[in-house]
Amino acid sequence: MTDATESRRDGSTRRTVLRGLGLTAAALGLPGLAAAEGDGRGGDEGTERTAEPYSLPPLPYDYDALEPHIDARIMRLHHDEHHKGYVEGANAALDELAAMRESGEFDRIKAVKRDLSFNLSGHLLHSVFWRIMSPDGGGDPGGDLASALRRDFGSVEGFKREFAAAATGVEGSGWGLLVYDHLAGRLLVTQAEAHNDLAVQGATPLLVLDVWEHAYYLQYENDRTAYVDAFWNVVDWSAVDAVYRAAASARRPAESN
């Protein structure tokens, strides 16, 4: 396989993934992420792109707003250091890709594409994570989302049990996710190791929970179960419902070709 063929196939796969993430971003008011398609800089199959580099979005609330469930120390470190690092890593990967296109030398393409996948996925998931939490969160979902959860998991409590088990059981570092699968038109609970491994291609993330140790260790130490239990107190179900309605109303990938 040539470098050009691999690059085209990689770009096609990434656009499929970002289509789902773009629906999430648009529903949560993150237009910069919604537009994140292609590599952000340089050409894409002959079409020049002028998108700005990725940037760290501000928290939509104060660092201490989610206390006592997630304390201010964690939020400051998590957002200002860890999330910022993923933004910088994604932009560095874009710079390397632009340099490769300029020079015509693609000997590091595999490593740089891996860096882009890891860092950009981390940036996207964290951007969603901040927005689906709120100091006024908690309780149970209602409306269309609640109906869909009952349809696909038997009950809202059944969904919560499955999600908590998946998030708690992530091997090493990663995420628990509720996603909308456009192919089947249904909800799924999935895991992601790191930010990008085990991902369901093209699915739209609705509810995401970071279970890397940096997300909870300062407060909960090694008790991930207690952290996952506390998470339900800050979930902004209205935000999750908005993403669900946007995803459910979108055409399936095969119908948009």
Rank of each mutant, 00 (worst) to 15 (best):
residue 146 A to K: 02
residue 172 G to N: 00
residue 106 F to S: 04
residue 90 A to P: 08
residue 183 L to A: 14
residue 133 M to W: 15
residue 210 D to E: 07
residue 13 T to I: 13
residue 208 V to L: 03
residue 36 A to L: 06
residue 206 L to F: 03
residue 50 T to M: 12
residue 182 H to A: 13
residue 251 R to E: 15
residue 232 W to L: 01
residue 180 Y to M: 00
residue 177 L to T: 11
residue 107 D to F: 11
residue 81 E to G: 08
residue 77 L to A: 13
residue 152 D to F: 01
residue 122 G to V: 03
residue 216 Y to R: 07
residue 32 G to T: 02
residue 93 A to W: 00
residue 254 A to T: 10
residue 3 D to I: 02
residue 91 N to H: 01
residue 29 G to N: 04
residue 18 L to S: 10
residue 107 D to K: 12
residue 160 K to M: 08
residue 181 D to T: 07
residue 187 L to I: 08
residue 122 G to D: 04
residue 190 T to V: 05
residue 205 P to K: 04
residue 182 H to T: 07
residue 257 N to I: 11
residue 8 R to T: 15
residue 176 G to K: 01
residue 48 E to S: 11
residue 218 L to I: 02
residue 157 E to R: 09
residue 157 E to K: 13
residue 109 I to T: 15
residue 21 L to H: 15
residue 225 T to I: 02
residue 131 R to P: 03
residue 183 L to I: 12
residue 98 A to H: 08
residue 145 L to K: 09
residue 175 W to H: 07
residue 150 R to K: 14
residue 36 A to V: 04
residue 172 G to H: 02
residue 146 A to D: 05
residue 237 W to S: 06
residue 37 E to G: 15
residue 47 T to P: 03
residue 241 D to K: 06
residue 138 G to F: 01
residue 245 R to M: 03
residue 223 D to T: 07
residue 145 L to F: 11
residue 74 I to L: 07
residue 142 G to Y: 03
residue 53 P to M: 05
residue 34 A to E: 06
residue 36 A to R: 05
residue 213 E to Q: 15
residue 246 A to Q: 06
residue 219 Q to H: 06
residue 133 M to D: 14
residue 64 D to R: 08
residue 136 D to S: 06
residue 181 D to M: 05
residue 101 R to F: 08
residue 17 V to E: 15
residue 232 W to H: 02
residue 175 W to C: 03
residue 177 L to E: 15
residue 199 A to M: 15
residue 252 R to K: 14
residue 37 E to F: 10
residue 160 K to Q: 10
residue 67 E to Y: 06
residue 1 M to F: 13
residue 111 A to P: 01
residue 225 T to P: 07
residue 18 L to M: 12
residue 154 G to F: 09
residue 210 D to H: 02
residue 202 G to N: 00
residue 233 N to S: 13
residue 60 P to M: 03
residue 70 I to G: 11
residue 10 D to L: 11
residue 47 T to M: 13
residue 129 F to I: 08
residue 207 L to M: 02
residue 246 A to P: 02
residue 188 L to A: 14
residue 155 S to P: 02
residue 188 L to P: 09
residue 19 R to H: 11
residue 177 L to K: 09
residue 196 N to S: 14
residue 191 Q to A: 11
residue 41 R to S: 13
residue 63 Y to K: 03
residue 207 L to T: 05
residue 54 Y to F: 12
residue 238 S to P: 05
residue 192 A to P: 02
residue 153 F to V: 04
residue 29 G to H: 03
residue 140 D to N: 12
residue 72 A to G: 10
residue 160 K to E: 09
residue 199 A to G: 14
residue 186 R to M: 06
residue 217 Y to I: 12
residue 25 A to T: 04
residue 99 A to M: 11
residue 20 G to H: 03
residue 85 G to A: 11
residue 135 P to F: 10
residue 192 A to W: 06
residue 140 D to L: 14
residue 184 A to V: 11
residue 86 Y to F: 12
residue 246 A to G: 05
residue 15 R to K: 07
residue 43 G to V: 11
residue 86 Y to Q: 01
residue 38 G to T: 08
residue 132 I to E: 09
residue 250 A to Q: 07
residue 144 D to M: 11
residue 180 Y to Q: 04
residue 25 A to R: 03
residue 227 Y to C: 07
residue 223 D to G: 05
